[in-house]
Each structure stands twice: as structure tokens, then as C-alpha cells.
Write a protein that binds this DNA or RNA. Structure first.
Lengths: 175, 175
DNA sequence: CCAGTGCGTTTGCAATTGCAAGCAGCGTGA
DNA sequence: TCACGCTGCTTGCAATTGCAAACGCACTGG
């Protein structure tokens, strides 16, 4: 059981690194870890400690939280209701902006589901005990089926359809 | 290089444990770690890995994030808002989608600041409540009246151009 | 008084992390 | 062709994690 889970975090790191167009040694130097160790981490041969993980996150200029979540080290929050709840609770944006954000988020989720039926979002280590019924407040707008206008999805296509997903490993060749 | 914070995380754990009125062994059992090791962690003699930390957090029924912050493993960057925190913590969207959402949200905030610096965005009459885009034709009507708010398309402009994933051209492959 | 049970701690060891050094492959220039 | 620099990968080894077993102490009670 030691192996499989660790792999995803390694893949994720490598994905982020290649996206950033930096070499393994560069990231290793930026993160303050040795290059062979980073190599082993990326291939899932080693399970980096939290400190190393944090340094790698800094080297990649990504959120350490995202990395921990990928590593399955943070799992308290409800994964899907959190963003929507926060958006609905935010009072610094207009109602229309709120709806746009919600639609975008749901569109992303939908695209991910369609494009990657395998729940790449890292198989949950613990089965979600009870899906919290995050009921909307009284004044919530009835979200109907048609979430987004056409041009909207069209504008998002470049991110959702092909390139954003990016789990297809464009030129990850090994062996 | 030893982090001086390691002590603080131990103190924090012990604090939480005593507050919960549970013994060291009980917490060790609940967290799935050995009692001697937990003892050493609490006294700062050992630096627990992220996995152990996560298990301890679960055993304590506290947020793993809080523990990571205490351990100095997460930048204590104050969350700009709950929305951003939630977006960053979400693992059901890709990294690029995350960035798009963050950028859009910040763009909204920025526009709101410029337009109505002191007025609560919710009270702004600028935004009608819930737009109901009951589109009839899925074709491309002349965009004399876009169903999308202007701020939205403005926010998306920078991404549609080229800069979402940094610089790489999405589908400009050499073939 | 001594067995039994709980607490936190110490000790010794297998397993693992993380690194320095070195290896093989690829592209560039003399 | 060789030298150089770059890419990532493999190999030993010190240091550390994390645990099982055992220790000392306080409390209960037969």
C-alpha cells in the first residue's frame, strides 16, 4: 500500500514542473532538495516528507495546500461544496459575478468528469461518510439545467477541453 | 537546518490533546501511531512526517491545515478570502482551471474596488439578480447583446489570448 | 504488601528518507 | 572525434523516522 498513492503526488509534481518548463535539477535547486531525490519522488519511489513537499511547492510557485491535497494529506474539507459555499457566502462580489463564478466552477467540474471519467482527483482514502446536504440559503437562485450560455463555454473551451486537463501526458515517455 | 518550529508543533499537539482530555496512548491509538513516537513528537524530539501529522490531526478531530500551519509547513499567508482559500484547496479541478478561477475572482474584486470602493457589492444596483439565459438558438447570434456581463469577458480576455498556461501554445503542435 | 492497571518515557532496531557521487544519453561546437 | 554542458537516473551511505518492548511512577484493591 505504500506504492500506489505516492505515485500520484509524484506525477503531479512532474506535471507541474514540465508545465513550468523547468528541468528537474532547476526545480531541485529552487526547492533546496537534491536532484536524485526529486527524481525519485516524481517517479513515486520515495515518499517525501512534509518539509520537502513544502519546499517543492515553493520551488514550483504553487500552493502548498494544493500539493498536500494531491498527496492526500489534507482531506478535511468537503471537496466540492467548499468552493461553492465560499462563493455563495462572499459578499464582495455582485450577484451576477457570483453566478458567473459558480457557473465556471461547475463547468470545470463537469468538463473534468466528462474528460476524465477516472476519478483522477485522487481516490479518496477514506470513504466520505455522509455527504453533507449543503442546502442553499433561502434566497438562492434556482439553478436550472442550462448552466452557461454558449459563448461562455466557447470561451472556456481552450482551457477545459484539451489543454487544461493535461492528464494525458503529452510527451511523457519512459523506458 | 533543523526547524525550531518542530517544538511548537509538538506543544500544539499536546495542548490539543490535553484540551480534549485524552491520554497520549488514546490519541496514539486513534491516530494510528505508536505511543512512544507520539510522546517524542510532543516533546519535539522527532519531526513527524506529513502522513503522521495528518493522522494525528484526524485523531484530534482538528483541521490538518491548522496542524500544518503550526508545523510551518504551510505558508501562513493569510487567505485573501474564503473563496480563494476554497479554490486553492480544491482538488477536483486542474491547476490551470484553478488559476483561471482565481484570476477571474480577483478580477471581479478589482473591478468592484474600482467601481464601488465603499459600497457593498451586493447592494450595487449595477447587477440584476439572476440572469436567466433562456437561449433559443444555439447558433451564433450577432453579439449586439452579450448575455454575459462585461466584466466576465474582460476577465477572460487575458486567458483566451495565450497566457493561461504560461506561454505554451495549446494546440500548436509541430505535428 | 504485592498484583493489576493506567500514565508518560526510554531504549534498541528495522525501515525509510534524503544526499553526494557517479553513470548513461543527447545536443552543440572546435 | 573529442570535449563540454545539459538532461534524468542509479548507486551506496549517513541520518532519521517510526515502532515493539521494556522501564519507572502513581493509583487501586484484594
Amino acid at each position: 500500500m505504500a506504492l500506489p498513492k505516492v505515485g500520484s503526488i509524484g506525477e503531479y509534481i512532474r506535471e507541474q514542473r514540465t508545465q513550468a518548463k523547468i528541468s528537474l535539477r532547476q526545480l531541485a535547486a529552487a526547492a533546496g532538495v537534491s536532484n536524485p531525490y526529486l527524481s525519485q519522488i516524481e517517479r513515486g519511489l520515495r515518499k517525501p516528507s512534509a518539509e520537502i513537499l513544502n519546499q517543492i511547492a515553493k520551488g514550483l510557485h504553487i500552493s502548498a495546500q494544493a500539493l498536500y491535497v494531491q498527496a492526500g494529506l489534507i482531506e478535511d474539507r468537503e471537496p466540492d461544496s467548499d468552493v461553492l459555499t465560499a462563493i455563495r457566502a462572499d459578499n464582495l462580489i455582485t450577484e451576477r459575478q457570483r453566478q458567473v463564478l459558480i457557473d465556471i466552477y461547475e463547468s470545470f467540474r463537469k468538463e473534468n468528469r466528462a474528460g476524465a471519467p477516472e476519478e483522477d482527483a485522487r481516490t479518496a482514502k477514506n470513504a466520505p461518510p455522509a455527504p453533507e446536504p449543503h442546502e442553499s440559503d433561502a434566497g438562492s437562485p434556482p439553478d436550472d439545467e442550462s448552466p452557461l450560455p454558449e459563448e461562455f463555454t466557447a470561451a472556456l473551451k481552450p482551457y477545459t477541453a484539451s489543454s487544461v486537463n493535461g492528464h494525458v501526458t503529452p510527451e511523457t515517455k519512459e523506458g
